[in-house]
């Protein structure tokens, strides 16, 4: 398997909280992988570690065989939409993209292409302060796409999107996969991603409790992926 993201025995503790607990998995190139688990199961912490934003307590995370910080042009390799604020409220959407286009060495014309792609071309001259949650998500996505990366990481991307937005995102992710790109998308709501993912990783209390292709996990004909998910992540004593 040609793995583009590899997480190896990753552990992250915040004080006494064990957010990620000896987690290992690999994401194969050219697939859409769902990173699932209830709130607090360690998804965000894992993704941030992959992106070099969080320092692991033990273990490591690699992107195309290197730690994130060692990627020569990271924006061209991997783009990320994080579940966190990342805009100056007083800067316009277009200026935000121009700043990071400059930092990534990407041409200015790419900014306008992306604004159109995510449907922000009309709002681009307005300050982000006035953007809705959905508009901020789309601006995040445009930022992640600046370097036209081969890998996309999305942390709870459906938050703040309306049903049309979610449909648009699904189609968009499928198109990227069909171009041979890789997507790792997290969610605590299985139904948001179930239709689009090729594979799932199910996380519970920082550990991997299931991994595989959707059809493998739902071996019993009457069982849905949702049954499996709820079964695996039911609160049990450790």
């Amino acid at each position: 398997m040609d793995a583009v993201i590899e997480v190896d025995s990753l552990t992250k503790r915040f004080g006494r909280t064990v957010a990620v607990d000896g987690l290992s998995f690999a994401v194969p190139r050219g697939s859409i992988v769902g990173f699932l688990g209830p709130n607090g199961s360690g998804k965000t912490t894992t993704l941030r570690t992959v992106l070099g934003l969080t320092v692991p307590t033990a273990g490591r995370a690699m992107v195309e065989g290197r730690p994130y910080a060692a990627l020569p042009e990271p924006a061209r390799v991997i783009g990320a939409v994080l579940d966190a604020a990342q805009f100056h409220p007083g800067r316009t959407g277009r200026d935000h993209l121009r700043v990071f286009a400059k930092a990534a060495g990407v041409s200015r014309s790419r900014v306008d292409v992306l604004l159109r792609l995510v449907g922000l071309d009309e709002a681009a001259g307005r300050r982000v302060r006035g953007y809705s949650l959905g508009m901020r998500q789309r601006l995040s996505l445009a930022t992640a796409l600046l370097g036209d990366p081969r890998i996309l990481i999305l942390d709870e991307p459906a938050n703040g999107l309306d049903p049309q937005g979610i449909r648009w995102l699904r189609d968009f992710l499928r198109d990227r996969r069909d171009e041979g790109r890789t997507v790792l998308v997290s969610s605590h709501v299985l139904s948001e991603v179930a239709q689009v993912v090729d594979e799932v990783l199910v996380l519970h209390r920082g550990r991997l409790v299931a991994q595989g292709r959707v059809e493998e996990l739902t071996a019993h004909p009457r069982q849905t992926l949702e049954d499996v998910f709820l079964d695996l992540t039911r609160e049990t004593s450790r």
Partner: peptide
């Protein structure tokens, strides 16, 4: 302010 507004995130993602 980079930490307050979160602009440090795209900053470090483009230049780790």
């Amino acid at each position: 302010g980079e930490y307050r507004h979160g602009t440090i995130l795209p900053t470090l993602l483009t230049n780790p």
